[in-house]
Lab assay of single mutants.
Amino acid sequence: KELVLVLYDYQEKSPRELTVKKGDILTLLNSTNKDWWKIEVNGRQGFVPAAYLKKL
């Protein structure tokens, strides 16, 4: 499993997105899109802007 660090808080703006908090370490599911990465948070899957995340 690949992990990502959340660099900035992000509030979901659609049902396909997820809310994340700065400092969270989460599972990366897909990073093929350069702008939006798919991650998992508490069993939910969704997208967060790639600029808000850093691969560990």
Results as ranks from 00 to 15, higher is better:
49 P>S: 03
19 T>G: 06
51 A>T: 11
12 E>A: 13
23 G>E: 02
36 W>C: 07
53 L>C: 06
45 Q>N: 10
3 L>V: 09
54 K>P: 00
47 F>R: 03
10 Y>P: 01
51 A>L: 14
14 S>C: 08
47 F>Y: 15
12 E>N: 10
18 L>F: 10
10 Y>T: 01
5 L>C: 07
18 L>M: 14
37 W>R: 01
48 V>P: 00
6 V>H: 00
12 E>F: 10
19 T>D: 04
7 L>H: 02
25 I>G: 00
38 K>W: 14
2 E>A: 12
23 G>T: 01
20 V>G: 00
7 L>C: 06
55 K>G: 04
11 Q>V: 13
32 T>F: 10
16 R>E: 12
1 K>F: 15
16 R>C: 13
56 L>C: 09
24 D>Y: 06
2 E>Q: 12
52 Y>R: 05
17 E>D: 06
28 L>F: 04
7 L>W: 03
15 P>I: 08
54 K>R: 13
32 T>E: 14
41 V>G: 14
30 N>K: 07
9 D>P: 05
3 L>N: 06
54 K>A: 10
3 L>E: 08
5 L>F: 09
26 L>M: 07
28 L>K: 01
12 E>P: 14
29 L>D: 02
40 E>G: 09
12 E>K: 15
9 D>C: 04
11 Q>Y: 14
17 E>C: 07
10 Y>R: 03
15 P>F: 10
46 G>C: 04
16 R>A: 11
3 L>D: 04
10 Y>V: 01
24 D>L: 09
4 V>Y: 05
37 W>F: 05
25 I>D: 00
13 K>P: 06
20 V>H: 02
22 K>Q: 11
53 L>I: 04
52 Y>Q: 04
8 Y>Q: 13
30 N>Y: 08
9 D>S: 10
55 K>A: 07
47 F>K: 03
39 I>Y: 00
41 V>F: 15
56 L>R: 03
55 K>W: 05
23 G>D: 06
22 K>F: 05
14 S>G: 14
51 A>F: 12
6 V>L: 02
49 P>D: 02
52 Y>H: 11
45 Q>C: 09
13 K>T: 15
43 G>V: 03
23 G>S: 03
31 S>K: 07
45 Q>E: 12
33 N>F: 08
21 K>I: 08
53 L>Y: 01
54 K>C: 14
50 A>W: 02
11 Q>M: 13
28 L>D: 00
43 G>I: 03
3 L>T: 09
48 V>M: 05
53 L>P: 00
35 D>S: 13
3 L>A: 07
40 E>Y: 06
18 L>W: 03
39 I>H: 00
29 L>T: 06
17 E>Y: 05
27 T>A: 09
25 I>T: 06
2 E>R: 10
18 L>A: 10
18 L>P: 01
25 I>P: 00
20 V>S: 01
19 T>F: 06
29 L>W: 06
26 L>I: 13
4 V>I: 06
4 V>E: 00
3 L>G: 03
